[in-house]
Design a protein around this nucleic acid. Structure first.
Lengths: 235, 235
DNA sequence: CAGTGGTCTAGACCACAAA
DNA sequence: TTGTGGTCTAGACCACTGA
């Protein structure tokens, strides 16, 4: 292991790797703190710090008098860090996928001009996707991005892992995000895309992600099936 | 102080109380961990655990090699999670009000037993309120609290400003809150209370607020009219 | 009952900040 | 150089869970 990285972080990473590798599955009990401490050759307090970090991240759950278990889902990460649909779904043990319904360079609508603080002469990329968890449609997501920001990215960068590609291939860094959540009834078109009845309850979110310098980066409107998705947050 | 409450929680509460009292103001440096440990007559590790909890809550900030400082209160503090009903309504230039529909001591339901971690023999206070903005009904809110926690409070304390009264009149301190947001259709009863059509879109939130020692304090279920309310988050 | 996580002690050495 | 928070040890006792 590398030097000058605290031991408890190294142990945290190792245990997390083992869980991801499948050494322990969801609901499994980990070895006791005393056993793990011996195994990693550290004191129990140090081992506990590693477990504490995992617990803070929602990766494991501790039960007094019983043991430490691989958690069913991460609660905190959902709204805390960079919320990607992929992370949320995977943390619940389901397989995320998506289908791109449309993808085009176009002229912004008035709401896009306002959200992205455009002058009306710039072009944007607008794409619409349906997102699935275990092949069940969960939401329809419309993303709009000023074209000049993502010029160096190709379509695969954008549709596969936008945030990572963007930070890797440009000098920009992402900053805060503002999100508004409301509820509405499904329109005919949305109902069809999501395979629900017309006038089902829909959880609607509109999010603007900003660059670290405060300029808008993307504007995302999502419509989730009300009974297939929940937002979780901790404060 | 009560027994069987961990020392580090007691110290956490005491330091927090001193900060609120003005012993140290925003930006002030607290005494060093070694000093505080001596002052509270505990080991440094225990004192650190108290400071850690305060840091997690954003009440203090640690700076390596420098010290521990009282964190500056940000306006964004409320925006870190979701903003409160009162704040959102007032920020839109409207006047918030509420009407209590029911208020009674009763036996907890199974979902309340689970959310509040009760044993089934304890009583709870359950109250139901309708919240308005400029006299337009916005949401129905059901709050459940273990009775023993609010025994010293009277009905006005509870309905007017529960959190403040609770922290003023008891030794308990409030900690984290977990919230889940989803969407559903209005039931007949909710539709009537909120003056909307049956099967309107409803934004549903369930929140559990915890004490600083991790025990549940209250369980709140809210149902907002979908086209009259939005949640705003920043992250 | 034995085993678990939760708490706590009284030290220690480190990297870092500030004077 | 001094003092700070960050990490770490090798024990200890507790309340709780589950057989």
């Amino acid at each position: 292991m590398s030097d000058n990285v605290p031991v408890y972080i190294q142990i945290h990473d190792e245990i997390r790797r083992l869980i991801e590798k499948g050494q322990w599955k969801i609901g499994d009990r980990l070895p006791s703190e005393r056993e793990l401490a011996q195994e990693f050759n550290v004191s129990r307090m140090t081992l506990r710090q590693a477990i504490q970090t995992l617990a803070d991240e929602g990766i494991v759950e501790r039960k007094i008098g019983s043991g430490t278990y691989v958690a069913r889902r991460k609660v905190q990460e959902t709204m805390a860090g960079a919320t990607s649909f992929t992370d949320i779904v995977m943390s619940q043990g389901k397989i995320p996928s998506s289908r791109t319904v449309s993808y085009k360079m176009t002229i912004p609508s008035s709401s896009e001009i306002e959200a992205l603080q455009l002058n009306g002469h710039e072009h944007i990329l607008r794409m619409e996707r349906i997102r699935y968890a275990d092949d069940e449609p969960i939401c329809v997501e419309t993303t709009s991005i000023p074209y000049h920001l993502i010029q160096p990215l190709d379509r695969e960068d954008i549709t596969k892992s936008l945030y990572r590609s963007f930070e890797e291939k440009t000098e920009y860094r992402l900053g805060k995000a503002k999100q508004v959540i409301s509820a509405a009834l499904a329109t005919e078109r949305i109902a069809e895309l999501l395979d629900v009845h017309r006038a089902s309850a829909i959880l609607v979110t509109r999010q603007i992600t900003y660059l670290s310098d405060g300029h808008p980066f993307e504007y995302v409107r999502s419509q989730y099936v009300g009974d297939r998705f929940e937002f979780m947050l901790e404060r």
